[in-house]
Design a binder for these strands. Structure first.
Length: 286
DNA sequence: AGATCGCCCTGCTTGC
DNA sequence: TGCAAGCAGGGCGATC
């Protein structure tokens, strides 16, 4: 379940291993992996042939590869189970290999998009004047972006009639936060997931943003979070931040702060993990 | 127009 | 043992 830190690990790997290379050939092995490319897999492959990869960029959980010479990017999202792997040509195909890129050089490696559940995918889009693929213009800056506006985020939170975890997962407000890091940041902030955003004071918003940044930075430093082998970096290696989680997946285990048994609650067809003592829902709402 | 909900998808785990 | 249900859940389009 890649969130911002995991996607950033992938971005760095791609920058090292495919940045600057020229695409020789693309094979689309599953149509759903390019469903966001409306013109289809054949068009996707044909348009990429001969194009150079100028850079590897990220906003939130989205990755994109600006191409050299044209104002177009390859956009990627890993979804729930997507991987972008750099493998040797002769490595056997993965069971869920969806797209293969071969390059016009003699490095002997290719780029593979592997995705079991096919929630992720790749597509080609024109860039906005800001250099962003046009279809993700609505995605907010992420909390590790130097241009993220903390004051504007607080103002937007106060204006919304919603609850804090919904807001954290709203990619048009703040991007890159998924279920795991939302629960971790809320635990660190001693905030209940159903707290109305309108009740947050500016210091509380600032503190929450600080905890979002801290937990993501800590995860990034150890290569991200992994529970199974679904998320890996471009070399197929897993991160190990799961050893450091305080909330996510800890139902019934003692809170790392007060010792109370952690709880799990069904929430929006997902789960929320929290400490019933440290993270109490406010008695009064706005 | 902001907020909410259902759907997409596969494999592992759980329960009868 | 075998099968079905549950669970993992990001993003987007439809709906109110």
């Amino acid at each position: 379940m890649p969130e911002l830190p995991e996607v950033e690990v992938v971005r760095r790997g791609l920058a090292t291993w495919v940045g600057g290379r020229t695409i020789a050939d693309v094979q689309v092995l599953h149509p759903r992996a390019v469903r966001r490319h409306v013109a289809g897999g054949e068009d996707f492959a044909a348009r990429l042939k001969g194009q150079g990869i100028a850079d590897v960029c990220r906003r939130g959980k989205y990755l994109w590869l600006p191409l050299t010479g044209i104002d177009t990017s390859v956009l990627g999202h890993l979804g729930m189970s997507g991987q972008l792997l750099v493998q040797r040509y002769d490595a056997p195909d993965e069971k869920h290999l969806r797209i293969r890129f071969r390059f016009d050089d003699s490095l002997g490696t290719e780029l593979r998009f592997v995705d079991q559940r096919t929630f992720g995918g790749l597509s080609l889009h024109d860039n906005t004047p800001e250099g962003l693929p046009d279809v993700i213009a609505h995605i907010a800056r992420d909390p590790l972006d130097p241009l993220f506006d903390d004051a504007a985020f607080h103002t937007a939170l106060r204006a919304r009639r919603t609850t804090i975890k919904r807001a954290l997962l709203d990619q048009s407000l703040i991007s890159g936060v998924g279920n795991i890091y939302a629960d971790e940041a809320l635990w660190r902030s001693r905030l209940h997931y159903d707290r109305p955003t309108a009740t947050l004071t500016r210091p509380r918003s600032v503190e929450l943003l600080g905890h979002v940044r801290e937990v993501m930075t800590a995860a990034l430093a150890v290569g991200g979070t992994t529970f199974d082998s679904l998320y890996v970096n471009v070399n197929g290696e897993s991160g190990y931040f799961d050893r450091s989680l305080d909330a996510y997946g800890r139902e019934g285990l003692p809170c790392n702060r007060c010792g109370t048994a952690m709880r799990r609650r069904p929430w929006m067809n997902r789960s929320s993990y929290f400490c019933p003592r440290c993270q109490r829902i406010p008695r009064t709402t706005a």
